[in-house]
Design a protein around this nucleic acid. Structure first.
Lengths: 229, 229
DNA sequence: GATAGTTTCATACAAATGTTTGAAATGCAA
DNA sequence: TTGCATTTCAAACATTTGTATGAAACTATC
């Protein structure tokens, strides 16, 4: 393989076009035109259109998953082997939200591509997403360590809701912006992450009936703190 | 129009096939074969494929929206013109969750169709969804009445997160089931609604620093109650 | 029962699309 | 250079797809 020129030109063009116009109405001919390569090059280098899409999505997914696990590991090391539940949730939703939201990310092709992938969900991408369960199990395990006494079911629901808020915010950011008439600031990614983390932690304390008044998470200065009642 | 036979046969067949196999790989020929009608009948009765899909989705959406508003109205009348925030959230997420989840709904074509529509999001459906903002404004208004002092921004985020949890649960129920190895009971719709409502209400109290200890929502017997600390 | 409007039908159309092919070009090693 | 493998290219292929057409069948009204 002398040079990846054609291969990477296709990848870049495909990601850009899919990000801009969606999987639905971008054809191989559009891609090769954008990349200035021959039509047959896609099948030569990737085998098929679906494998091209899969490669794009896998690459980006691996990046996000690695960031997540890095954050988790860092939090666990900082906590002497056990991360706080807040930090775990932050590691879970932070990379995705940071990657897909924010004003500077407006022009990021990778981010817009991942948003598309989240919205349109074509077959090759769905197949890959199904493997994501193994990755999530690592977070479930960390949560179990952070909240030893807690019911497993509650734990999974908390994890599920955290992803729900993060992904739905990415998917429906236009609608939220329109609904709130701009009042919800979707550029302040830090605040959004704080918000999602806060609510996720709250969700994980459902049914918690402590003997002494519980520490109650409160959003202060865009950062999660605890305030005793 | 002597009889709607052909028209409704097409609608029924289309909904069934789309629900089962997705919009991606169901053609008009599949639909007319299932409906035992002629290929040209679709264009004759609906104009185009997209208008057929739009009609299916609009019909179901109107049903859900009407149920939502009925529940909201009932709650407001029961509360003497002002519904509690819990009841508002329940009216928002209840109909959708009840429609798409639960064991008996497994065979409901309408439910599975709406799940598909939520996952795949083809153009005609996206266009309709964009008009949904007006509908949500009615809930925002009710919430504003229920929580007069509250910041509008917080209110929209709470509304947004409630929909996030409901829709994501519908979209990703398979994954949650697999992740939790069956521990999360997705057939107990009442409990799920309670859970989503509880967390939504919690989300709406972020940053609430009350002069006296706040009433804290707690899940008891699968039903939302209030317990003073 | 003739007529006008509606609905159904078989068939054709036209366009788009992913994929394949076989030859030409290119790069690289001996 | 020669020879061999890799890569590029133009063109064609083979389907699939939604849509259009015009005649036939049907229905209801007068």
């Amino acid at each position: 393989m002398a040079s990846d020129h054609t291969r990477s030109a296709i990848l870049a063009a495909a990601e850009r076009l899919y990000a801009d116009r969606g999987f639905g109405d971008v054809t191989l001919r559009d891609i090769v035109a954008e990349a200035n390569v021959n039509l047959a090059a896609v099948n030569y280098h990737f085998g098929s259109k679906d494998e091209l899409i899969a490669e794009l999505f896998v690459t980006r997914s691996i990046q996000t998953n690695r960031e997540r696990l890095n954050e988790l590991k860092a939090a666990e090391e900082a906590g002497g082997g056990r991360a706080s539940i807040e930090d775990i949730m932050r590691a879970l939703v932070g990379p995705t939200l940071r990657g897909c939201l924010g004003p500077d990310r407006e022009g990021s092709t990778a981010a817009r591509f991942m948003i598309r992938a989240s919205i349109e969900s074509v077959p090759p991408i769905r197949r890959i997403k199904n493997r994501e369960v193994d990755h999530l199990r690592k977070f479930a395990a960390a949560m179990r360590r952070a909240m030893p006494g807690r019911n497993d079911t509650e734990l999974y629901w908390g994890l599920h809701f955290a992803l729900a808020m993060a992904h739905h915010t990415i998917r429906e950011k236009e609608r939220l912006l329109r609904l709130s008439e701009g009042k919800c600031d979707l550029d302040d990614v830090r605040a959004i992450i704080d918000r999602v983390v806060t609510v996720s932690v709250m969700a994980l304390t459902i049914g918690d009936v402590p003997s002494k008044p519980a520490a109650r998470p409160v959003l202060v200065h865009g950062r999660l703190t605890r305030q005793d009642l």
